[in-house]
Design a protein around this nucleic acid. Sequence first.
DNA 1: CTTGTAATCGAAATCGTTTTCGTGTTGATA
DNA 2: TATCAACACGAAAACGATTTCGATTACAAG
Lengths: 342, 342
Amino acid sequence: MLAKELDLSISTVSKALHDSHEISQETKDKVQSFAKLYHYKPNNIALSLKNQSTKTIGVIIPEIVHEFFSKVIQGIEEAALEKDYKVIVSMSNESYESEVHNIELLNSGAIDGFIIGLSKETLEKNNFEHIQECINYNTPVVLFDRVVDELNADKVIINDVESGRKVTKHLIDCGRKNIAIVTTPDYITVGKKRLEGYLEALNEAGIPPNENNIIKFNGGKSFSKTLHQLEELLVDFLKNNPDIDGLVTVNEANAVAVLRAARQLQIEVPKQLSVVTFSDGIISKSTFPSLTTISQQGVEMGKQAAIALIDSIESTCPIKKVKTIEIPTKLILRESSSFKST
Amino acid sequence: MLAKELDLSISTVSKALHDSHEISQETKDKVQSFAKLYHYKPNNIALSLKNQSTKTIGVIIPEIVHEFFSKVIQGIEEAALEKDYKVIVSMSNESYESEVHNIELLNSGAIDGFIIGLSKETLEKNNFEHIQECINYNTPVVLFDRVVDELNADKVIINDVESGRKVTKHLIDCGRKNIAIVTTPDYITVGKKRLEGYLEALNEAGIPPNENNIIKFNGGKSFSKTLHQLEELLVDFLKNNPDIDGLVTVNEANAVAVLRAARQLQIEVPKQLSVVTFSDGIISKSTFPSLTTISQQGVEMGKQAAIALIDSIESTCPIKKVKTIEIPTKLILRESSSFKST
DNA sequence: CTTGTAATCGAAATCGTTTTCGTGTTGATA
DNA sequence: TATCAACACGAAAACGATTTCGATTACAAG
């Protein structure tokens, strides 16, 4: 508060700016108009130091060039803005090491709490010490999407089991009997759970599950390459299993691979093969046929995560109970699924 | 540096942690091992206050759920991480007011400099006082993608005119004679410039431009709605102009609308109508036919912007010359364009 | 024995703000 | 006239770190 040294002390100026009753109206007016004139803005760093609170939340996501994650960030931003919080974003690039490094970088006064989407490698390694440490040292943490039960933190998820069930049941309702699924390896929680839902739906319909119809595929970093690999894999699969009439994919990219493979084999979608997927993103709307999908409500997820985190940050209560928030999903009907005409 | 009070003073501990020569090896070892044991991390806020530098860069983008912008952020993150900078992201939602508000929020000690992609509304209003003020008060600013010449800041852009020319020339080389363009209103700089390039290419090829073949369309916030509106508009246009054999679109979403409209009218792409677009994103790869496009190198753009900004931040020289960095683009050939067989 | 010089360490200023507590002035009241 | 309250303002601590400068000790050299 440098230049304010016209004739008043630092404390007087501070009080004047805060409309303190201790200061005469005359002085207040003088200081305030002067502040406006010189575009005075209090230094947030100094405030942070004084208040022991930065009013910023740190977000760690696996990647940002990914519609779902960017939607989550949007939700976080929206909720944060409303409570006058800033958002600092860091990407782990699906790497355990980056995740740890970024968390350490931020967790030294820069932020008041974390919202974290765990990286694939972290889940694979099954090592969550870095998260546990945050929790132990009283930095509030909210996990979203990819969560692990053993961590004592708030969690925001969609009900993946239920969604997997819902989307599979839709295919069954369409008269499909031989339904395959393209999912992820088990260490990706969401893939595993959606698979569970798929199995549940089959079970409820009295359709015996078939190991061969479960394809576990882990995409690489490059969209095109991943697409191509999976496409070839699926061409083989569909060629060897011509009776498949329904296919669940666990994300949009995989669904595109399915559409490509089907086109190669001149299999008509949705007539011969109905396809459903997850994530109501740009791809689902842009492909032909457009994709029947489960909307994951990324924005809503981000909002809820931010609200939960800010609650934790501002809560004075030392003992806190962790909660798990479930975001409802919606089945969005498009062109890639239809009733099977026999 | 609270708990360090075992027997030493604050200053001694600080020096010991920094391996000062003033401190005996014995003491240094003691302090350092103690620090490790207690997971001591210096408080970044205090450091920022002392050093008058936050090692954080503020990024203002119009929206985050947008592949190009998220790629730019990724590039910024990558370059920032390398120089130990943090990144704080803020979205303007294409709103002037949000842009101003977010800049003000951050520009009070929270960041050392800005990387800004201007909002549509700001460009429309043609009001850049808030940016000028940053520059005046010596907060370094780098503009990217959507820039304005009158601002005395570093700029990172792609050569939109040249790219527009390149992509149009490709259609001409494919033997297309009646080439239309779907672009934005003129206040969106990139759309305006790409249109210029389009006109240049036509001119070079001796093809007289046709006002009717220039469609200026401004999308709304909703992808689906925008898509639908433009699709209808294009159905009309293509029906009334059956001789159109080439079409340039200025972004991927518009290209999807073109593909849809063509399908409605049973116009074959690329045979009857070749389509080219901008942004080598997920959509270009996912549509059928996949889209010939100009790669905008978002990641590279972000990197260069971050490097330029950090240069400015760390430069001690009071007089700085602004520079404009041009990121080269590449034409990526896919299925939506082909030579016209007569 | 005095003085000089490393070698170690601590006190205090600094960054910009808020806040507690004190201080001085004014005017009214006893 | 002396006392007291109300009013207006300032001094200084605090937040957590670095850093300059000074202080102390011990030991060697003169």
